[in-house]
Design a protein around this nucleic acid. Structure first.
Lengths: 168, 168
DNA sequence: GTCTACCTGATAATAACTTATGAAGTGGGG
DNA sequence: CCCCACTTCATAAGTTATTATCAGGTAGAC
């Protein structure tokens, strides 16, 4: 648990970065580094990890702003596994929180609409089926009628089918 | 469901960006924009949304790479329903970028739902029309038939209407 | 006292990124 | 035929970001 501190010279060698670059990063990224009584920087292992990350992101081509943003969302979040509710970090990350909650909200609405759509869809399907059945029935009925007319009509037995029709 | 397309000139005015800047963004961000037969760019509403987002991120100071990253996490998965929980960080806990991408995702989903809704509505309208037509037709036909049966059938002049029916 | 390792602030030199312009060409309309 | 609104490719110009250097200082070690 003994915290180990590195001076800028060591870090510089360790990470192969010029000291002035380290100072530059510290400023531009607004990274806070401890100081001793004399004002000399004291880098912790964690700081070095952060720097390694920064270097990686830089390689990827992210600019200072993006890296700073990324760090903001990292620094304080390693402990909590998956934050059930909207993450904290209220100090810096107002917009982030906002975005997340917005997403939640919209997502919920979306789900609701999707549910309703499903219901609608089902109703629609039933209706279509019904209509289909109806039209088929109608065809059948008419065909039947026509058949009757053709056969029985030819025999002049009009009475019979007429009454049958009326009976219905 | 009618997709509306904008030419670069319109988009330029709409978003207040020079056309060459739009082309630059397209290249640097590797955004894909549809073209017509002549090669002219056709921007969809979704494209414009994307551009708005890009502009916002630019204002925040993110560089091309960062924005591209943010967009990438989005473009890929439009179909997946609603992410139940906010996904965990991939490479580096880059939650902000993810949030942004989530927003895009969700709003895309939103559009999709709206599209589906419109489709459903259209189907419903067609069905109603169809149903109307059918029932009117059916009534008409049956009435006609019944009329025939009542009048002519009663006079035993089956031949005449039967042949008429056959003539049809 | 001189070295070494650090600090700050300012400035210079580069590199990278964005935006603006120009040239040359296409196709639709009036 | 010319104008308009596009296209591409290339290049210039303008901005920012990053890296390097220099100057002037402090404190501990030998």
């Amino acid at each position: 648990m003994k915290e180990r501190f590195y001076k800028i010279g060591e870090v510089s060698e360790l990470l192969n970065i010029e000291q002035h670059t380290l100072r530059y990063l510290e400023n531009s990224l607004k990274i806070k580094i401890r100081r001793d009584e004399r004002g000399d920087r004291l880098y912790t292992d964690s700081d070095i990890d952060t720097l390694r990350l920064v270097l990686k992101l830089k390689e990827k081509g992210l600019n200072t702003t993006a890296i700073r943003l990324a760090l903001e969302n990292v620094e304080e979040e390693p402990p909590p596994p998956v934050p059930e509710t909207v993450p904290k970090g209220p100090l810096v990350n107002f917009e982030f929180v906002e975005a997340v909650s917005l997403v939640r909200q919209v997502s919920e609405q979306n789900e609701e609409i999707i549910r309703q759509n499903k219901l609608l869809e089902e109703r629609l399907r039933l209706l279509e089926e019904k209509l289909d059945r109806y039209s088929r029935e109608r065809d059948a009925t008419l065909n039947e009628l026509i058949q009757l007319l053709k056969t029985e009509g030819a025999e002049s037995k009009s009475k019979s089918w007429l009454s049958r029709l009326r009976g219905k």
